[in-house]
Amino acid sequence: MAGAAPQGASRSEVYRGNGPRLMLPTWVFIGIFLVLPVGLMAIYSFLTKEFRGGVIWEFTWAAYDQFFLDRGLFGDEPPSIEWTYIGIFWRSIWQAGLATVLCLLIGFPTAWFIATREASARPVWLFLVTIPYWVNLLIRTVSMKFLIRDNGPLNEFLLWTGVISDPLSLINTNFAVQLGLFYSYLPFMVLPIYSAVERYDFALSEAAADLYSDNWTTLRLVILPVVKPGIVAGCILVFVPSLGAFLAPDLLGGAKTFMIGSLIEEQFKGAAGNWPFGAAAAMILLSIVMAVLLLHARAQSKEAS
């Protein structure tokens, strides 16, 4: 995380005049291979679908119509609001939100606990939390799948201890997807909160204590508002990737219920073969994420001023 830098460093002009030239490779690569493709995808979402995959270059609203309007199974009933896809998005948002809250509930105490250790002990704790963050997401998801399967180690253990008498059916449920999202992105929550807590000035807590505030009240009224930027950063780092997650619903949810990620994937790799619709769903997802980030940026600049 960016340390407290002397403000002057960024205004340094040692190589004045070279800015655009040095920036050029970034513009070229991200411009051509990300901005341009996303623009193209936006165009695709307005094209006519070709049967079984592909597009016809004729402009239409059909993909968005299909997303938002229900015209019945046969397409000739008077349009009403289509809840199918809104429902998929809503459930994805709900699951991502719940994963974020769960991560926060575990992540904040962890970050706090680590940040308040002796300075010499902190790196070791931090190291422990960082390792899973660096481990391949696919491998972590597969490990979770192995752990919670019907006759997997978790059930064996619980049966052995006698806590349960029948194996828990965890795999292929929404709960498993939820657990997977939580588990996947937990380290993303701890790290930014940690760097915020580390910079927290305990003089504030002392002042509060002098005014007879107990620790929990101080947490609520003093600490949380001060470390809020770290919390918000952590929440965004968990929420955004959870929203478009593919591996957790596919491997842990039994590919049974679509989330946004699998709905889009199905349009390009599965039977549906409706590219404009997939592009439209991706555009809607992108809009939601951009709206969240924009709100965040605006709140930040408001706080700064």
Partner: peptide, 12 residues
């Protein structure tokens, strides 16, 4: 397209 609709509806 109708079979596709049934399939999507099934997996929503």
């Amino acid at each position: 397209v109708m079979y596709d609709a049934i399939w999507t509806e099934l997996k929503k």
